[in-house]
Protein backbone atom coordinates (compact mmCIF):
# COMPACT_ATOMS: atom_id res chain seq x y z
CA UNK A 1 0.00 0.00 0.00
CA UNK A 2 2.83 2.39 0.92
CA UNK A 3 4.61 1.53 -2.32
CA UNK A 4 1.43 2.36 -4.26
CA UNK A 5 1.15 5.71 -2.45
CA UNK A 6 4.78 6.58 -3.19
CA UNK A 7 4.34 5.63 -6.85
CA UNK A 8 1.11 7.68 -7.10
CA UNK A 9 2.82 10.71 -5.61
CA UNK A 10 5.80 10.29 -7.94
CA UNK A 11 3.48 10.09 -10.95
CA UNK A 12 1.51 13.14 -9.74
CA UNK A 13 4.74 15.09 -9.36
CA UNK A 14 6.01 14.05 -12.78
CA UNK A 15 2.78 14.92 -14.56
CA UNK A 16 2.31 18.29 -12.89
CA UNK A 17 3.03 21.28 -15.07
CA UNK A 18 4.72 23.79 -12.82
CA UNK A 19 3.58 27.38 -12.99
CA UNK A 20 6.33 28.45 -10.58
CA UNK A 21 4.44 30.37 -7.95
CA UNK A 22 2.17 33.20 -8.89
CA UNK A 23 4.21 36.18 -10.14
CA UNK A 24 3.11 36.39 -13.76
CA UNK A 25 4.19 38.45 -16.71
CA UNK A 26 1.29 40.71 -17.69
CA UNK A 27 2.92 42.38 -20.68
CA UNK A 28 6.24 43.18 -22.24
CA UNK A 29 7.80 45.62 -24.65
CA UNK A 30 8.42 44.42 -27.28
CA UNK A 31 5.22 42.45 -26.80
CA UNK A 32 5.10 38.68 -27.01
CA UNK A 33 4.89 37.70 -30.68
CA UNK A 34 5.45 41.28 -31.88
CA UNK A 35 7.24 42.08 -35.11
CA UNK A 36 9.00 45.40 -34.68
CA UNK A 37 10.60 47.57 -37.34
CA UNK A 38 12.89 49.49 -35.03
CA UNK A 39 15.65 47.84 -33.07
CA UNK A 40 14.59 48.09 -29.39
CA UNK A 41 17.00 49.75 -26.98
CA UNK A 42 15.30 48.32 -23.91
CA UNK A 43 13.16 45.35 -22.96
CA UNK A 44 10.40 46.12 -20.46
CA UNK A 45 8.68 43.43 -18.41
CA UNK A 46 5.48 44.17 -16.45
CA UNK A 47 4.38 41.71 -13.76
CA UNK A 48 1.08 41.24 -11.92
CA UNK A 49 2.80 41.97 -8.61
CA UNK A 50 6.01 43.52 -7.30
CA UNK A 51 9.02 41.45 -8.24
CA UNK A 52 12.73 41.68 -8.82
CA UNK A 53 14.16 40.66 -12.16
CA UNK A 54 17.06 38.29 -11.52
CA UNK A 55 18.14 37.22 -15.00
CA UNK A 56 17.35 37.85 -18.64
CA UNK A 57 18.78 35.91 -21.58
CA UNK A 58 18.23 36.33 -25.29
CA UNK A 59 18.32 33.42 -27.70
CA UNK A 60 18.96 34.48 -31.27
CA UNK A 61 20.21 32.43 -34.21
CA UNK A 62 21.08 29.56 -31.89
CA UNK A 63 23.22 31.78 -29.69
CA UNK A 64 22.33 32.53 -26.06
CA UNK A 65 23.34 35.90 -24.59
CA UNK A 66 22.97 36.93 -20.94
CA UNK A 67 21.80 40.52 -20.57
CA UNK A 68 23.13 42.50 -17.59
CA UNK A 69 20.37 43.09 -15.05
CA UNK A 70 20.47 45.59 -12.16
CA UNK A 71 20.06 43.17 -9.26
CA UNK A 72 20.14 45.98 -6.70
CA UNK A 73 17.11 47.71 -8.26
CA UNK A 74 14.14 47.99 -5.88
CA UNK A 75 11.28 45.59 -6.45
CA UNK A 76 8.63 46.95 -8.77
CA UNK A 77 5.86 45.81 -11.08
CA UNK A 78 7.97 46.77 -14.11
CA UNK A 79 11.60 46.13 -14.98
CA UNK A 80 13.36 47.94 -17.79
CA UNK A 81 16.53 46.33 -19.13
CA UNK A 82 18.80 48.11 -21.65
CA UNK A 83 19.84 45.93 -24.60
CA UNK A 84 22.42 46.70 -27.26
CA UNK A 85 23.64 45.20 -30.50
CA UNK A 86 20.39 43.55 -31.58
CA UNK A 87 20.18 42.67 -35.25
CA UNK A 88 17.17 41.69 -37.37
CA UNK A 89 15.78 38.26 -36.64
CA UNK A 90 13.72 36.39 -34.09
CA UNK A 91 14.59 36.64 -30.40
CA UNK A 92 13.52 34.34 -27.60
CA UNK A 93 13.54 36.20 -24.27
CA UNK A 94 13.93 34.08 -21.13
CA UNK A 95 13.38 35.85 -17.83
CA UNK A 96 13.63 34.90 -14.17
CA UNK A 97 12.17 37.00 -11.37
CA UNK A 98 11.49 36.63 -7.69
CA UNK A 99 8.22 37.86 -6.18
CA UNK A 100 8.79 40.05 -3.15
CA UNK A 101 5.57 39.21 -1.31
CA UNK A 102 6.02 35.45 -1.14
CA UNK A 103 9.62 34.78 -2.21
CA UNK A 104 8.64 32.53 -5.11
CA UNK A 105 10.80 32.32 -8.20
CA UNK A 106 8.95 32.87 -11.48
CA UNK A 107 10.27 32.02 -14.93
CA UNK A 108 8.96 32.56 -18.41
CA UNK A 109 9.79 33.32 -22.00
CA UNK A 110 8.38 35.09 -25.05
CA UNK A 111 9.39 35.76 -28.63
CA UNK A 112 9.64 38.91 -30.68
CA UNK A 113 11.02 39.59 -34.14
CA UNK A 114 13.01 42.53 -35.46
CA UNK A 115 12.10 42.93 -39.08
CA UNK A 116 14.79 43.47 -41.65
CA UNK A 117 15.23 47.26 -42.11
CA UNK A 118 14.73 47.09 -45.88
CA UNK A 119 11.56 45.02 -45.41
CA UNK A 120 10.35 47.32 -42.66
CA UNK A 121 10.53 50.41 -44.81
CA UNK A 122 9.01 48.77 -47.86
Amino acid sequence: MLRTLFLSAAVALTLATPSFGHAKLLSSSPASGAQVAEVPKTITLTFNEEAKLAALTLLHAGKETSVAVDKSAPSAKSAVVPVTGLTPGTYEVHWTAIATDDGHVAKGSFIFTIKNASLATS
Binding site: K52, A54, A55, S66, K71, S72, S75, T96, I98, A99, T100, D101, D102, G103, V105
Partner: peptide, 30 residues
Protein backbone atom coordinates in the same frame (compact mmCIF):
# COMPACT_ATOMS: atom_id res chain seq x y z
CA UNK B 1 19.73 26.36 -4.55
CA UNK B 2 17.11 29.09 -5.03
CA UNK B 3 19.90 31.50 -6.07
CA UNK B 4 21.30 28.88 -8.44
CA UNK B 5 17.88 28.27 -10.01
CA UNK B 6 17.64 32.01 -10.76
CA UNK B 7 21.13 32.48 -12.11
CA UNK B 8 23.64 30.84 -14.37
CA UNK B 9 23.57 27.30 -13.08
CA UNK B 10 25.95 26.13 -10.39
CA UNK B 11 27.90 29.41 -10.25
CA UNK B 12 24.64 31.11 -9.24
CA UNK B 13 24.61 29.14 -5.98
CA UNK B 14 27.66 31.13 -4.89
CA UNK B 15 26.50 34.44 -6.38
CA UNK B 16 26.17 36.85 -3.45
CA UNK B 17 23.90 39.23 -5.37
CA UNK B 18 21.45 36.40 -6.15
CA UNK B 19 21.45 35.18 -2.54
CA UNK B 20 20.81 38.78 -1.42
CA UNK B 21 17.82 38.99 -3.78
CA UNK B 22 16.41 35.79 -2.30
CA UNK B 23 16.89 37.12 1.24
CA UNK B 24 15.26 40.45 0.36
CA UNK B 25 12.22 38.64 -1.03
CA UNK B 26 11.18 37.45 2.44
CA UNK B 27 13.66 34.65 3.14
CA UNK B 28 15.63 36.90 5.51
CA UNK B 29 12.52 37.17 7.71
CA UNK B 30 11.52 33.48 7.62
Amino acid sequence: IIAGSMGDGFSGTLDGSMVRMVLEAGEARA
